[in-house]
Nucleic acid binder design. Structure first.
Lengths: 207, 207, 207, 207
DNA sequence: GATGAATGAGTGTTCATTCAT
DNA sequence: AATGAATGAACACTCATTCAT
């Protein structure tokens, strides 16, 4: 069922888009294949020509979303020299990409969690490249001397991802009303320096 | 946990415990009422004498878990004077409580997210008291001058909760093998000061 | 379970009345024993001290209703001399009794039909005495020369009962708003002479 | 009966026939969809491709039965000139149609009554056309001078329908053993002239 | 007699998936 | 490739009835 890179007559994309719309509105368990098919303008059976099953459809959405973020990051990060500025770009691009398609964000942030153990493992695989990028930046930060080498990489990564994740989820659940990317600078500030007051700031975080 | 309350000849508690076990293993959508009932040693119908429906059973688990954390925090926090130490106690107690019952943690961290919009609202209501405690500590921190008043309360709270949540979820999904509470000091350190290197540290974070 | 004639502390009657009320409103299949018990002010189990099961409860209602009608007819009919006047009394008393307790009428006319084959046989047994009364009057009518002996007794009886039944059911289903006994004279007229015009009437039907 | 229409490869008809058979034997509340499906040779789910739900299946049976009677009456009645002969045709055709399919008669006469209030309203709607036909004939009878204009139309209609209904129900409950249409002439006689003896008969009712 | 907590059998309906065309 | 009619497994919840107290 690996259709490959050719997207045929656009049906692959149409079904994926329809799935994002339907799932974002109704949730994974209430998103019937028949409704997704109708929305995409194809027959029920056609969905199974492009996706192995409903679960695969959900994972494909995540792959697409994370794939795009990673792709953009791979292009943008080399531009930045310091780890600090790379982290800044990560948060910005992550927020920008997700805020560009609220329905997609709703699916990845909320409905994707509504799945069972087996699926969760695959979600981890898909997130890998993104986690690796984060780890790379933390590494560089330590080498540069701006990130505390004593902090566990795992903990650092989880704080960064956990904070971004919680922020996007809150944004999505409150209706995607405010400007998400605008929060990036303040987020980066707490990631770098925590919530503590800093009188000794020389070069303040600006954007 | 709530030992001795034993209302209704212990059936209420038995069903709740059985639900935690079954849901933690199979997930909410795969946890049949009949299986929970069997595990609890009661008839299917008996479940409905103690809980309104399956959803109510799930919410009761969260209520129990969060209720206990909040209860302990309300007793412990007044003991601590500074906001910093209060934050420290929050992370410690949160980690300790959840690590005491990995199955319960699995349910609240993973399976509880597998629910639809209507339920999500109720989850928010249950979490309210915990969020309020966090806000209170942040407030105090600002007044004490240790927390940066320029940082949005919302963002601060989301970083704190997002980081703890991500940490517990990762612990639970990797099999609850390592000592979760032992991570508390390092977590508090990144919450307070971020990931940045701090040469200017006068009084380092210790425990 | 034959409690006999003694009605103990009135619980037998209380449960029967409660059943009439609950079934008339909710229908047989929606009338839970627990609700009938609550309405009667007794425990669920107590219902089974006075009635074999739910079905028996329903039959008891019919027995009570038909029993009262038959009792009254057995007292009133001997008073009337001619078959014509006896028929008149039958319709009058049948209508009067049912209109006295609309809830009871609702149960016997509507909800009692919502039962299965086995029960239906028993309903027939209960109706027997009433049918016998009808047959007796028809017999007498033939002997008196006012009823056409050529008409099958069965057909005559079904016309009489079918017409009364349809009339009462219509009355009950439209909310028991109008005066049912007031229809008796006209009903008797069509039972005796059909719907045809009668120019040759010597002694018209009056009341 | 509607032979040749055969829509949907006959599955619609097959399910309807299976439902008539199963319900006539077991009653509405004991007729499981799975049993009807098996009897029709289709999967359970297939029933729901042709009928909205179990209730809709029951109403479809009545619609089919009454629809056929009304159709035949609409063709036959214009043939008859007088109201008397039209009434005769109504009884004949009603009896003939129902006696042609005893299982169908069992469902409409007995099991259809086993339903709740909401359904009952819809039953009324379906019966409307038949009631209207009866009213039309009574009207004509009054105009012709053979029906007593002083008799309430409602009462006349209820006597006619109540008598037919009671007759068919009795026939069906006793095993559909005797010839139902053969009773038509005698039934018409009691509808027209009641049970009274008629010495003054000039042109007696014959068939 | 009276209670009411506990039982557990019973079923309409949905929907992901298949496959003959 | 595309269709969509057909499939059938799966399950939360109700409620008449029982029985230990």
């Amino acid at each position: 069922m690996d259709i490959g890179t050719r997207r045929d007559s656009g049906k692959h994309t149409a079904i994926l888009q329809a799935a994002i719309q339907v799932i974002s509105q109704a949730g994974y368990h209430n998103a019937q294949i028949s409704r997704i098919a109708r929305e995409a303008g194809v027959a029920d059976g056609t969905v199974y020509l492009y996706f192995k099953n409903k679960e695969d459809l959900l994972l494909s959405i995540l792959r697409k979303a994370i794939g795009e973020v990673v792709l953009q990051l791979e292009q943008a990060l080399p531009t930045e020299k310091t780890a600090e500025w790379k982290l800044r770009r990560i948060v910005e691009i992550y927020f920008q990409d997700l805020s560009r398609d609220p329905a997609l964000a709703m699916v990845t942030q909320v409905h994707l969690r509504q799945v069972d153990a087996e699926l969760r493992r695959q979600v981890g695989d898909i997130m890998k490249p993104f986690y690796n990028l984060l780890d790379g930046v933390i590494d560089q930060g330590v080498r540069e001397g701006v990130v505390d080498g004593a902090i566990s990489h795992r903990i650092a990564r989880r704080m960064i991802f956990g904070t971004m994740d919680e922020t996007v989820t809150a944004w999505v659940l409150t209706g995607s009303k405010y400007n998400l990317p605008a929060l990036a600078p303040e987020i980066v500030r707490v990631l770098l320096y925590g919530i503590s007051r800093r009188d000794d700031v020389k070069e303040e975080v600006t954007l």
